[in-house]
Nucleic acid binder design. Sequence first.
DNA 1: TTAGTGATATGATATTTGTCATATTATGAT
DNA 2: ATCATAATATGACAAATATCATATCACTAA
Lengths: 233, 233
Amino acid sequence: MKGHPMDSICDCNQCELRNVFFESFSDEDLGDICRNKTEFTYLSGETVFREGDLIRYFSYLKSGLVKLFKSDQAGKDQIITIAGPYDFVSLLGVFSDTRHSYSVSVLEDAVLCCIDIESMKEIALRNPGFSMSLMERMGAASTRIIHEGLEIRKRNTHGKVAYILLKFCNEIYGECIFDLPVSRREIAENIGTTTENVIRTLSEFRKEKLIRINGKEIEVLNPAALERISNYG
Amino acid sequence: MKGHPMDSICDCNQCELRNVFFESFSDEDLGDICRNKTEFTYLSGETVFREGDLIRYFSYLKSGLVKLFKSDQAGKDQIITIAGPYDFVSLLGVFSDTRHSYSVSVLEDAVLCCIDIESMKEIALRNPGFSMSLMERMGAASTRIIHEGLEIRKRNTHGKVAYILLKFCNEIYGECIFDLPVSRREIAENIGTTTENVIRTLSEFRKEKLIRINGKEIEVLNPAALERISNYG
DNA sequence: TTAGTGATATGATATTTGTCATATTATGAT
DNA sequence: ATCATAATATGACAAATATCATATCACTAA
């Protein structure tokens, strides 16, 4: 699946994300980026790229939600992280590898800004301030993923599920009521347990009135108690 | 603990690591690095820096073995990774953060090459090729840590212990017989289980003649079987 | 509509893992 | 040498987790 290039190419000068990623840019460099970028829209369920595909773009998410994941030989997936607006879709390997080391697929309709990787390298090479801020931002993204992995690794199943629910509340949606963008199986693939354990744990949280469940809709009724469980209760 | 600056400052021109980290350097830049770096030696058990300390250096390991770890409020440690020669000690946060987000201590007597962080930033800002190769190398380091975290997350205890033993064989020492540089507790802190489980699992591997144990000395007798267990047997 | 498939849900059970107790061996300090 | 402490080791048991079976529900395709 290739995504759908937008007819109306956005104007990078007006891009609300300019300050986030390209603050140190001159107008010329911004023009360069603008000419060498394509915006792609994807529908929920579509694949952006697969592990092993050639890297063509440096890309970041303007809107929507995607998952980064790896598949093993048995076909089982392992979710690395869920990325939202302002997050990078191409991680650090983008400048050193020729092929993607993970797959990306879309959880909620998404718009990606994709900049031709060779152009990106050229611009970085003649704009050291940009290289530096890129390094800072990509460093922060990697640090976040590493940190999240450690947080998950040290928790038991209850703590893991509480942790991921709070991530949806606090980081992804910013509210205590939301539609889960992933299946129970995907939660399991994210936190490293089985689908049944996720379902069971969610049911237990429901019985204890910590959350309300209606299919994909989740409401966190007692965030403080979930925090306690997440911090190992 | 501050480490012990070497009396004989090495000549970066002669440094065997030059090709690894600073390939794109001009002689002038190399001279700059050389003037702004200090080599520190540390003994096994010493601390290089602690989580929360101000970042003063960009540093990499010339020789020896160190652990990168985080401590929680209860004082329990979690090992992020074990780093060897040619590995970075300062990770990606080094250019964006002011304080270290993890601690580093020494497992085997180590020599660190430490370059003043402000000098490093200046040099990177006027040498975009260097920024780029730095980004590539730090990217590869982060990718390795993320990958290792995923590999650990998906294994059960036997698989985790087999995985870490094979890491010592294949990646750290390059032979099947070696002295464990870490305690059983540290292995547990690395793979996310308890000390008892590590000890028990090692004993089981010994009883099944997969390994030979003599205190810290380990010999892997059946790497193929360990591989099978690591790949989930 | 109906059949088929995948997601959610729950129970039963076996296995794995964590916890607690205890003993022995190393290691380091005085 | 002696003491204290940490590391290693093992058993017993409780708790957590994985596995297997089964049922219902939702959704898609024909």
